Simulated scan of single mutants.
Amino acid sequence: MPKMKSHSGTKKRFRRSGTGKLMRAKAFKSHILTKKTTKRKRGFRQETEIAAADSKVVNARLAGR
């Protein structure tokens, strides 16, 4: 049986930090930016850790299971 492939979309959206946490980009940064404050938009630049509830699924997709 051939090897399982990692999920390509998951590879593009998540990365593992140096300490092993799964990181994701923040939402709401793509459009309708004029009404959002500069401080709020600046906050969207930082990555954040994914929720514990989602980590099982994301780990499985990255591992190719």
Rank of each mutant, 00 (worst) to 15 (best):
G43M: 05
K56P: 12
F28G: 06
I50D: 02
M23E: 00
T38L: 13
G64V: 02
K56C: 15
A51M: 09
R16K: 15
H31T: 04
T19E: 09
F14R: 01
H7S: 05
K35E: 15
T37F: 05
T34V: 12
M23N: 02
Q46M: 14
R61H: 10
G18A: 14
F44L: 13
A51V: 05
G43V: 03
F14S: 00
F28N: 12
A25T: 12
P2M: 11
A60R: 10
G64W: 04
K36P: 00
R13W: 08
R45V: 07
K3G: 09
H7V: 04
L33Q: 07
R42Y: 03
M4C: 08
R65F: 07
M4S: 13
S6T: 11
L33V: 08
S55V: 05
G18D: 14
R15S: 07
E47R: 01
G20Q: 04
M1V: 13
G18W: 01
K39H: 10
S8R: 09
G20F: 01
G9Q: 07
K3M: 10
A60W: 05
R61N: 06
F44Q: 10
S17M: 01
K29G: 06
A63L: 08
H7F: 09
E47H: 04
R16H: 03
R65P: 04
T37M: 06
L62C: 01
A25W: 11
A52F: 08
E49W: 00
E47I: 00
V58S: 02
L22S: 03
K26M: 13
R42I: 07
K3Y: 08
T48W: 07
A52Y: 07
R45P: 04
D54P: 03
R13S: 07
K26V: 07
Q46K: 15
M23Q: 03
S6E: 09
G43A: 04
A25N: 13
R24Y: 04
H7L: 03
R45G: 08
N59V: 05
F28L: 08
L22C: 00
R24C: 08
K36C: 06
L62G: 00
V58T: 03
S8F: 10
K29P: 02
Q46C: 09
M23Y: 01
R45Q: 14
K11D: 09
G64M: 03
K21I: 01
R40S: 11
R65E: 07
A27F: 10
G64H: 03
T19R: 13
K3S: 11
M4H: 12
R16A: 05
A63H: 06
